[in-house]
């Protein structure tokens, strides 16, 4: 894959915006439409654009496959971890109200952590899928 100058310039210009938008969707998700899954997909779209513009080698130097695997596991762990933390605090599974002293603040913290877990998992898994397919196409 020979990277293309025009695409490189455009990617350099666009990727920061894509990432900002992704973080907006991720962390503003409790006030406007959005959430972890959407944000994760947008982040992985940025990763795909990066690979298209700069090549797989450079991208893998940034985020190796192994790191992506770890990240996707960490996201699920964060999700279930929050659920179990609710259990330990005396509530039901995923009952965020008990996380903090204040019910509403607890709900807030809970949903942000959960969505963060979802976001991390989705972003890393989709990127992982793309990377794996890209590797495959180069073998054959």
């Amino acid at each position: 894959m020979r990277p293309d100058l025009l695409l490189k310039v455009l990617a350099k210009f666009l990727i920061p915006f894509i990432l900002i938008f992704a973080f907006y969707v991720q962390f503003h998700g409790d006030f406007s439409p959005g959430g972890g899954f959407q944000a994760g997909v947008i982040i992985s779209a940025a990763a795909v654009l990066y690979v298209l513009a700069f090549g797989l080698e450079l991208a893998e130097r940034g985020i190796p496959l192994r790191a992506l695997q770890y990240l996707s596991s960490t996201g699920i762990l964060l999700y279930t971890g929050v659920g179990v933390a609710c259990l330990l605090k005396g509530g039901n599974f995923l009952d965020y109200s008990v996380l903090l002293d204040n019910d509403v603040a607890g709900q807030h913290l809970g949903i942000i952590l959960i969505e963060l877990g979802v976001g991390i998992t989705v972003a890393s898994t989709l990127t992982l899928i793309f990377f794996t397919f890209a590797h495959w196409s180069r073998h054959s």
Binding site: S73, I76, L77, T80, G81, V84, L87, F93
Partner: peptide, 24 residues
């Protein structure tokens, strides 16, 4: 305490174990 949560733990335990196993 755990008695109240036995039902959900049946599902949560493997869900918790899956990512840990992948990391080991």
């Amino acid at each position: 305490m755990i008695e109240n949560h036995m039902t959900i733990m049946l599902v949560v335990l493997p869900m918790l174990a899956a990512p840990l196993i992948a990391l080991l």
